[in-house]
Amino acid sequence: MIIEDVAFPAGVHCETTTLGALLRHEGLELSEPMLFGLGEGLGFVYWDAKYLDFPFLGGRTKPFTITRNAADRLGLELRVQETASPRKAWQNVTAALAAGRPVGLQLDSYHLDHFTTKVHFGGHFAALRGYDDTHAHLVDTAQQGGLVTTTLASLALARGERGPMTARNRSYTVAVPADRPSAADAVREAVRSTARTFLTPPIANLGHSGIDKAARQVVRWLDRSADPAHDLPLAATLMERGGTGGGLFRVLFRDFLVEAAEIADDDVLREGGARYAEIAPLWTEVATLVETAGNTGEQAHLTRASEVLTDLAERERRAMRLLAGEGCSP
Rank of each mutant, 00 (worst) to 15 (best):
A190H: 04
R24L: 03
L238M: 03
G27R: 03
Y46C: 00
E326N: 03
R304Q: 15
N69S: 09
V174R: 15
G59V: 03
V6F: 00
E29C: 14
G246W: 09
T150Q: 10
F8K: 05
A214P: 12
L105P: 00
V218I: 11
G39F: 11
A95L: 08
T16R: 10
P228A: 11
D133E: 13
H120G: 09
E262Q: 03
A89W: 01
T296K: 14
R275D: 05
L74S: 08
S193F: 04
A156M: 10
T303W: 05
V12G: 09
K88T: 12
A319I: 07
Q143M: 11
F54K: 15
D113I: 07
A236Y: 06
M239Q: 12
G104S: 05
R216Y: 11
P102A: 02
G27D: 04
S225Q: 10
A226W: 10
D212Y: 04
F8D: 12
L238A: 05
G247R: 04
A10Y: 12
L112H: 09
L269V: 03
A71H: 13
A313Q: 01
V103D: 10
A70S: 03
R168S: 15
D265E: 06
L157K: 07
I2K: 12
V12E: 15
D179N: 04
A156W: 07
L282R: 07
T237F: 15
R275N: 12
S225W: 14
R87A: 04
L23M: 05
A324Y: 08
E259L: 01
A214W: 05
E316D: 09
G325E: 06
T17I: 13
V148D: 04
T149C: 02
D179R: 06
V251R: 01
E285P: 14
Q144G: 11
G41A: 11
V80G: 14
W221T: 02
R317F: 13
T117G: 12
L309V: 02
L19R: 05
V290P: 01
E278G: 07
L199M: 09
D311M: 05
I279W: 00
L78A: 12
D227R: 15
E259P: 05
R87D: 13
L76H: 07
G272F: 05
R321Q: 10
E262H: 10
I211L: 12
Y46G: 05
